[in-house]
Design a binder for these strands. Sequence first.
DNA 1: ATTATAAAAGATATTTTTATCTTTTATTAA
DNA 2: TTAATAAAAGATAAAAATATCTTTTATAAT
Lengths: 146, 146
Amino acid sequence: MFSKTCEYAIRAVLYIAQMSKNGDKVSIKSISKGIDSPEHFIAKILQELSKKGLVQSLKGPTGGFYLSEQSKKHSLADIVRAIDGEKIFTGCGLGIGQCSEEFPCPIHNDFKMIRKKLFDLLQKTKVNEFNNQLEMQLAFLKKNHN
Amino acid sequence: MFSKTCEYAIRAVLYIAQMSKNGDKVSIKSISKGIDSPEHFIAKILQELSKKGLVQSLKGPTGGFYLSEQSKKHSLADIVRAIDGEKIFTGCGLGIGQCSEEFPCPIHNDFKMIRKKLFDLLQKTKVNEFNNQLEMQLAFLKKNHN
DNA sequence: ATTATAAAAGATATTTTTATCTTTTATTAA
DNA sequence: TTAATAAAAGATAAAAATATCTTTTATAAT
């Protein structure tokens, strides 16, 4: 559904949201362990998210990543859009460039509905809304949650 | 959503379904033009679909691709499964290997619902059900449909 | 039988995605 | 004000997906 980069991105932001909720900053090493992703790879991804204002960061000792009040209110859709672009929300299910209402692919309408559902879900879901579930271990961001 | 390979595969099968509905066979060249895909690439994809019994073929003059009575009844889900595998129907939205009811990722339930909708749609849609729409130019398999 | 046709098979090339490594810059603490 | 820390930036590498090219095999028409 999403690129691997995007999956890591979402998991990272949810992890940062939870770990930084009391003003702490979270290091790449911690993130990488917390979501079970390659350290250098997630570093690159966070660089990108940082440039686009979806996460904040500070260099140096006690530095790391955190979320501004604004960033906490971002939706999963914002992250997906920043990494994978609009295509997943608007593109044709069969990859036809000019698929449209006027010249639809055979599954145009069915897909439109599914994509809309996906978008609505991602749009309404904010990055800080899982903090408690994550803390209480009712939801997980990696496979080995021990 | 799907790999490009899979998008081509679906378009090719729908094209074959329509073009071969009266017993004709369809050449790779015709398919490639009809769905606007690289000729050698779609040849490879059809080889795979042929091996898996999703399309039939015959070599030599007057040869080409067609669909057996059985193949006409296949669903889009069958094609997706043959090319992209099960992952899109069952995999975790955030790419967590062991995501499950017991140890769910944060968006587990929402995604389960969307994936189910996607699967149901693809499962109930048969490859020959667009023949008329395609012929009447109410639906299209490529961008330049002139 | 021979030739032409069209898919199958196998090999290779290109591009994109994913991942890693090294150097630089900013910040803090001692 | 120096040393340590941690992210940013830039370069490189590996793997996977996409695309192309060549040779072989099966079939049909002559």
